[in-house]
Design a protein around this nucleic acid. Structure first.
Lengths: 152, 152
DNA sequence: TGACTCATGTCAGCATTCTGACATACATTG
DNA sequence: CAATGTATGTCAGAATGCTGACATGAGTCA
């Protein structure tokens, strides 16, 4: 297949499968978050802040895999609606550390339950060994992709 | 950046890792495709057509994980630029089977080389056994997510 | 101290994708 | 045969994310 210039066999490509799995996961998450009036990025932002209070806009953006401009739009909306607070002035530099409000924390709780159920469903049928194997393998892929990325 | 350097160890759930890996793969693909003036969806469409000539717009959309409306926009551009052809009238029903032109095939060849190098890089450091393990695991995840999706 | 580099927050404009909607074509069912 | 359900191609408007750009603050280095 690879030799005769036939291209990448999509049925056997791990890259394609990775995209497919990610797409299925996102769709499943959107489905359970929609009744809560929340998007995936919206949830990601809240979850990140819950685990690491005081993250800046740029750090949140990297954690949610969007640009800092996109995250900024979201953060302003979350701030306006009272899910998140940021100080008016930066304690140091320009960085504005964001934190969840009680309301934001309450909102996140429901979402976390929903998202956790999706993850549990995704991992059903996999043994503990397989799961930790998947963990290692995915980390290896990420590392390999990022490594040469900078060099090239 | 964050000066406290506190735990970069984010919520390293398998779901998050999956998203991270997929994001890294997409970024790496965008990087090698940009010099060729091609986006990931653009490339996906061409690759799909190379392997399964005659796919319809809707089928291409499903294969590239976008809506048929988005794929339609892309297909019209590809058609206008001479990479793809579709019959003026549908042979049967409304389905318009798309095919690569020689120009489209030439364009794809370069892109395939670039994308293949990314995939090779991603899999560097993984044994054959690990790769087939990853394959099975990803398929299991996809199946589990889609299965209950319909039911629940 | 001053020049330089880097990262940040934010504004503005653009691109891409999505949701909603419609007409059409085929298959199924009564 | 008619009614229904499903799938398609396509248009239009809205949402979302991105690129480009700017000023600001901090760290580095001579």
């Amino acid at each position: 297949m690879s030799q005769n210039g036939a291209g990448i066999d999509l049925d056997k490509s791990l890259g394609y499968l990775l995209k497919e799995a990610s797409s299925a996961l996102r769709a499943a998450m959107e489905e359970v978050l929609r009744p809560l009036g929340m998007t995936v990025t919206h949830y990601s932002c809240l979850e990140l802040l819950a685990q690491r209070p005081g993250l800046s806009n740029s750090e949140l953006a990297r954690g949610a895999f969007v640009t800092r401009q996109s995250m900024n739009v979201l953060l302003q909306a979350l701030e306006r609606d009272g899910y998140v607070t940021r100080p008016a002035a930066a304690p140091v530099g320009k960085v504005l550390p964001a934190r969840l409000t009680p309301r934001g924390r309450r909102s996140l709780e429901k979402a976390t339950v929903a998202v956790r159920s999706v993850e549990v469903r995704m991992l059903a049928g996999l043994t503990e060994t397989e799961q930790s194997g998947a963990f290692r393998i995915l980390q290896s892929m990420i590392h390999s992709l990022r490594d040469d990325n900078a060099g090239a």
